[in-house]
Design a protein around this nucleic acid. Structure first.
Lengths: 252, 252
DNA sequence: CCCCGGCCTTGACCGAGGTCAACCCGGCCT
DNA sequence: AGGCCGGGTTGACCTCGGTCAAGGCCGGGG
């Protein structure tokens, strides 16, 4: 929170109604007076610089967060300093749910680039939920989506070879870009190779090799943090070149 | 536990108040009139036989479920018949959350043994949630716990070698037994070796070998589906024998 | 009672990907 | 401008655990 963008951010103040994410975020399906009340519940928009934590593992829980712009990574760190990246979070996505269970954050969230965050203090939110069943349902839907996504990621971690993991990762990122009406063919990888490797359960070297291999194959154009998908058809079929598990009667 | 216990199960009919899981399940922190209303919301107790599905992947969503007795496994099956086990569910645990997102079950749940299930039709539940903020908070807490547990599992799938995975799996099962006031030292593995392997992202053969190795090491006594933990101290230290990631300043 | 079919175990082999090491490259600071 | 440093890439090697194959065990049905 320093340079010149501060002004713009302040101008935007809180206003779900005018937010580009209106239809993707918590307010989806909420209008009029209810929307205004949700608006009032969102405290400050916090702005985070690259690397700045939104909350720390073990820290006291007091709010849920929605990414407004930029991107975050969430991760857990074990006693011996080992890091496991849990996910990357684009605008419109909810962060912090794992803390409700026992009032302490089980993971850490930090900005991958300069990001703007909507903060929903949990007591105020609870108050609102009690009065707005529609918001309550929408919240559960959003959380459910998150759970389903995590299940998908378990499939990746459990069964898929390295190349499929990368392909699925890129496809998923591309899809999420598209949902935001961004160009899904031009990804801006705000996270480091280490983050990607950790997230996919691979070694950095493997991630690096896969990028070059996929570039050589004409599927991607990779330049530093910018990745262009040249052949999404090839990328797609790369996602499921997996062995067919020798179960009974396969058609394919 | 099958033949004669059927009668008892029927006798118990629905009554959260008298349920042994009262303090672990959804009703936790709810009493009196509110509890009675939750009670009324729970439709039937469904009883499932071994292998019987509670809901199918892709099926229409209309209820959440809580395991009352027995155990379930949830899994996803991809186009080519590959199965990934997502989790095992003991009494008091909530199942079906991943379906709220789009009204269709993203995974499949099926009984690992004869099991009794509390069914919470979602429309009724929603009605109740709108009137009972405390229940709403408790539901979110339970879901949050689930999310946090899945995050833990990502750590396992992402970084840990086979032996640690097994150890962590057994410890977690033991802990959950203890929460149910069962003997955490005597596990009854209602799932097959294949299920365990899939859940941990390993091959069946590896799981099998690890069981024998841990038995030879005097940590376990393994007999078919019954596993006794002889040296929980050794099991514990097996959970974190991982390499220390060469990060800055380690204490330990 | 015996046979059959899952499920599980055990052994031998092999390969995907992790590890180690060297190097490169671009940004930043003096 | 030069040097440094963190992140990224590339190559050589080796290991963990997957795969393949061959039984063993147990339970259920004829």
């Amino acid at each position: 929170m320093d340079t010149s963008t501060v002004l713009d951010l302040n101008q935007l103040r809180r206003s779900c109604a005018s937010c580009a994410l209106h239809e993707l975020c918590l307010p989806a399906g909420i209008d009029g007076e209810d929307l205004r009340r949700l608006d009032d519940t969102i405290r400050d928009k916090r702005t985070l610089d690259r690397g700045e934590p939104l909350f720390r593992q073990g820290g006291q829980f007091h709010a849920l967060y929605v990414v407004r712009s930029g991107s975050l990574r969430t991760f857990v760190e074990d006693a011996s300093g080992n890091v496991q990246v849990l996910g990357f979070h684009l605008p419109g996505e909810l962060v912090g749910v794992d803390a409700l269970a026992n009032d302490h954050h089980a993971s850490q969230a930090e900005a991958l680039e300069r990001s703007s965050i909507c903060e929903l203090p949990y007591d105020r939110l609870n108050h609102l939920l009690a009065q707005m069943p529609s918001l309550q349902r929408q919240l559960m839907r959003v959380v459910s989506r998150e759970v389903a996504a995590e299940h998908q990621h378990m499939v990746v971690m459990g069964r898929q070879p390295a190349q499929e993991r990368m392909a699925i990762f890129l496809r998923s990122l591309s899809d999420r870009y598209a949902r935001l009406h961004r160009d899904g063919g031009t990804l801006n990888l705000s996270m480091s190779r280490y983050d990607i490797a950790s997230y996919l359960g691979l070694a950095v070297e493997t991630v690096s090799r896969l990028f070059t291999r996929m570039e050589e194959a004409g599927i991607l154009e990779v330049s530093r943090k910018s990745v262009t998908i040249l052949r999404s058809d090839l990328l797609e079929e790369m996602c499921s070149s997996s062995r067919t598990s020798s179960k009974k009667g396969e058609a394919l």
